[in-house]
Amino acid sequence: MKKVSVSFTLNGDPVTADVPVTWTLLKTLREYFELTGAKEGCGVGECGACTVLVDGKAVNSCLYPIPEVEGRSVTTIEGIAEKDGTLHPIQKAFLENNGVQCGFCTSGMIMSAKALLDQNPDPSEEDIRKSIAGNFCRCTGYVQIVESIQMAAKLKE
């Protein structure tokens, strides 16, 4: 399998991955860097469990070809808490307000929320729902996820 060497910033650190050219960003994160927070829920960009940030934008990493990451900045769920372990306000809010149940969608959900709040610190409920429209959840009915993101917006103020 033809390999490619891709250099980019991962959770603030410069990294290089030597992986098969056909790999996706998700596979690279999970297999090469052993960052398994981003999940494969469908593998075809429908469920959002694999959401990470590329240059601040939420993307489905299961569809994102690894060569496209060259020179970009990737943030995953593992990279948003403080170095000392202090949780990001969105992470705190999800625990506080039961935005997590089984947790499988949570990494993607939080990353979509982060992309939103970084752009729009005071979003409406509709803005929030739009931002997670591509993140599926079977446990929560989304209600407490939306509330968690609203709470996170307040915590960040």
């Binding site: 398994t36 769920i77 949780l87 999800f94 506080e96």
Partner: peptide, 18 residues
């Protein structure tokens, strides 16, 4: 709060997938 499950909001929780 569900603080006891903090691994689920940080990507540390190990599912069968992982």
């Amino acid at each position: 709060p569900r603080t006891i499950e903090a691994d689920k909001v940080t990507g540390k929780a190990v599912y069968i997938n992982d």
